[in-house]
């Protein structure tokens, strides 16, 4: 199953490393799209079909929380899983994000296994056995 993935982070380095990590994790992608903030991500979501989003929280213009809130008001966008990838270590903040509807959380620095475990869960591979 090939996925259309959207990577949202204001750091081009992080987006590049995430894309490389997806490949290292053996995750098959059809299209990998990049956005530097929540606003750019919403623009892309208005034009392209995306299966999965990996997004940072702290970003200029529109942060990750605002992006998730705006997605929740759109019938189609609110069905797209959002995985937050952040340096954030506060369980309090992570619980707040889960209440807002994020699917999962990965803390930086990340490993390919972190991405693989989440994608396997989302695509049902972990339940296949």
């Amino acid at each position: 199953m090939s996925l259309n993935v959207l990577l949202v982070d204001d750091s081009i380095t992080v987006r590049s490393v995430m894309e490389k990590t997806l490949h290292l994790a053996g995750i098959q992608t059809n299209m990998v799209l990049h956005a530097a903030n929540g606003k750019e991500a919403l623009d892309i979501l208005g034009k392209e079909w995306v299966d999965l989003i990996f997004a940072d929280i702290n970003m200029p213009v529109m942060n990750g929380v605002e992006m998730i809130e705006k997605m929740s008001h759109d019938g189609l966008m609110k069905t797209i899983p959002v995985v937050v990838v952040s340096t954030e270590g506060s369980q309090t903040r992570i619980e707040q994000l889960k209440d807002k509807g994020i699917t999962a959380y990965i803390r930086k620095p990340f490993q390919p296994e972190d991405f693989k475990a989440i994608v396997d869960d989302l695509t049902g591979l972990n339940n296949a056995a």
């Binding site: 380095t13 506060s90 309090t92 930086k108």
Partner: peptide, 20 residues
């Protein structure tokens, strides 16, 4: 980005996972 990650990890190491 390197400092961003070091800072986030340092804050947790010093004061735990409760504070925001």
């Amino acid at each position: 980005e390197l400092l961003n990650v070091i800072c986030g990890q340092t804050l947790t190491e010093l004061w735990g996972t409760e504070p925001v």
